[in-house]
Design a protein around this nucleic acid. Structure first.
Lengths: 340, 340
DNA sequence: TTTAGCACTCAATCGTTTTGAGTGCTAAAA
DNA sequence: TTTTAGCACTCAAAACGATTGAGTGCTAAA
């Protein structure tokens, strides 16, 4: 692939991304640094087609990039997109606003990403590995109910209602809190899971019942922690994409967006850092003509989650990936602040 | 409007609801108890059209019901739909399953409604009026943070993290809990709202700061309580409706579904009990050809929220309203159980 | 190696014709 | 007075055919 062919391939892709119409030889001559006649371009095009980088919808039409063409573009030809000042500011402002809940932060990140790219976006909840218990406190509420307060080492507080089988005396609350603190403080939360509750040997049946209720609540912490919901925003942006004029295509994609499992698969199969998956490379049968760009976001240098955009194969890879980089970076920063 | 006209109008509507194609005179003769020739039916139809109950898309087409026609049908002609056993069971089973969270329950109600009707559904969160504080407890977490536990008279427990400005001694926690219990237990929660925090006269600046943080948390209880989110499910069902072949229509409706405000308006404007709003009667500009059936659901005989379906004007009013009645009744029952 | 020129292709557009479902009206039958 | 058979009429939708024009591939000269 010589220089001029590269120039032409890039021109075709840029043009097609913008107009979403087959690109003719005449269209790109005199631009994109191509000071040759359309006939010359046609010869090159014919060659590029034989090489598999572009294709022709029908004989008398222009060319459109093939998936292989996009891949080559992303790997070798793509120029860096310069963020507009207002884009940069929008990202920083929006992700800097004080938010109290993790969900809201992820939601916001997804929204701004969708807004700026015009594509639907997905954000996976962060996997915070290695959380430990720091402190326990069982609080009296009334005769039949207590509240278990758990502080984790990232300072987050969780609490669970415990229905009491028998009545507890005031000192019992302290005793139980102490037992929990002695046994579990500093331990990894995955130690207690619903698969197998430990047997600590109890003095009475009542002790056993109460403590097992509590342990079940602790198991809940882990279980809930392992459900990594995936948020999706800007789904209606697909209506802005000319390739989604067909109602069945829209339906298929929107339907896909409602399936947590498929989204999960999509997110989990992405590589660390920025990952481009183009057309067939997207690990989803029954959805064609789509590309996915994902980026992992990091806390303290470690990737903990994924954020990405979904668009037609002819999406604006350059702009999207730059925005994605910036947003995932800022998301990481906000996340650290949120957890402090 | 004589008997035969009613018979014919009902026949046209039933037929149109099923086939979604203009109904011809020949089509309904010999059925629906119409033992007359098509010519006779034609005469009657022509009359019904002059009266405004049906209309003709173009000269050589059959008739379709007008909005006025649907209104007449709903008010006078509609026959009661008999629930299939599997429908009844599906509703009872699904709403009987133990759920712990209010949101999940509403979600479920919406889902089953959408599933059985094939239309999108909306469910508003219940307005629980007149909640009172029952009990307070301020719990020590660490030097910089405390947890405020609030028990309401419906036994629900809420809790808020309080960031401490200064350090508190162990007895302070008890003192503050006591003050709150003395002053507020038994009071209506709307007494403390973010509009105006009470000034209780404090001994020191620190006391003041701590207590005001707490009061702000209490105000939150009310504020959060006043946000009545509206859940929507089964949105993709609109793809099953032949009137939504047009992409722009789909887009408009899906877009509408994302606007909490509009949904709120829709829910709040419904009357108590079952309410049918047909076409123009729906209080939403820029959305045409839609009908909405809503039903209030009750706790202890009092309507506390709304559940409903949204469909094309030619929706199956009979089936939908019967399902809606049944589901809203069961939702009320489950709700009472959930709060106990 | 490049390019002007020309024949060729084919989707898309436009206009015309055909088709058939369904009506309205009329005049005879009930 | 009401019902109905019969027939002319209407019009959207389908089928067909002709036209257009953007864009190509190829060839022969620059």
């Amino acid at each position: 692939m010589d220089d001029r062919k590269q120039l032409i391939l890039r021109a075709i892709i840029r043009e097609y991304i913008g107009k979403v119409e087959p690109v003719s030889s005449k269209n790109i001559t005199g631009r994109y640094g191509l000071d040759v006649s359309s006939a010359t371009v046609r010869n090159e095009m014919s060659c590029l087609e034989r090489m598999g980088y572009i294709e022709q919808p029908h004989t008398s039409a222009g060319r459109i990039p093939s998936e292989m063409g996009y891949r080559y573009y992303v790997d070798y030809l793509m120029e860096k997109y310069r963020l507009a000042i207002r884009e940069k500011q929008a990202i920083e402002n929006r992700l800097d606003e004080r938010v109290d809940k993790l969900e809201s932060l992820l939601q916001k990140a997804g929204e701004i990403l969708s807004e700026l790219t015009n594509y639907p976006s997905i954000v996976s909840e962060p996997t915070m590995t290695q959380k430990r218990y720091r402190h326990f406190k069982l609080v009296e509420i009334n005769d039949t109910m207590a509240l278990l307060v758990i502080v984790l080492d990232d300072s987050s507080i969780k609490n669970y209602q415990i229905n009491l089988v028998g009545r507890l005396k005031e000192e019992d609350y302290k005793t139980i809190s102490n037992i929990l603190n002695d046994r579990l403080a500093g331990q990894d939360i995955s130690g207690i899971n619903s698969g197998m509750l430990p047997d600590w040997g109890y003095q009475s049946l009542n002790d056993k019942l109460v403590m097992e209720d509590i342990l079940r609540a602790l198991a809940n912490v882990v279980d809930q922690d392992n459900v990594h919901n995936i948020h999706i925003s800007g789904t209606l942006n697909i209506f802005n994409q000319p390739e989604f004029k067909d109602i069945e295509k829209v339906r298929g994609l929107l339907n896909f967006f409602e399936q947590q499992k498929s989204l999960q698969k999509l997110v989990e199969s992405g590589r660390e850092g920025i990952s481009y998956r183009i057309g067939e490379e997207v690990p989803l049968d029954n959805l064609e003509g789509l590309s996915v760009i994902t980026s992992t976001y990091c806390v303290n240098g470690k990737p903990v989650g994924t954020i990405g955009v979904i668009g037609p194969t002819r999406m604006d890879y350059s702009k999207s990936s730059t925005l994605l980089e910036k947003i995932s970076e800022n998301l990481g920063i906000s996340l650290i602040r949120l957890m402090k």
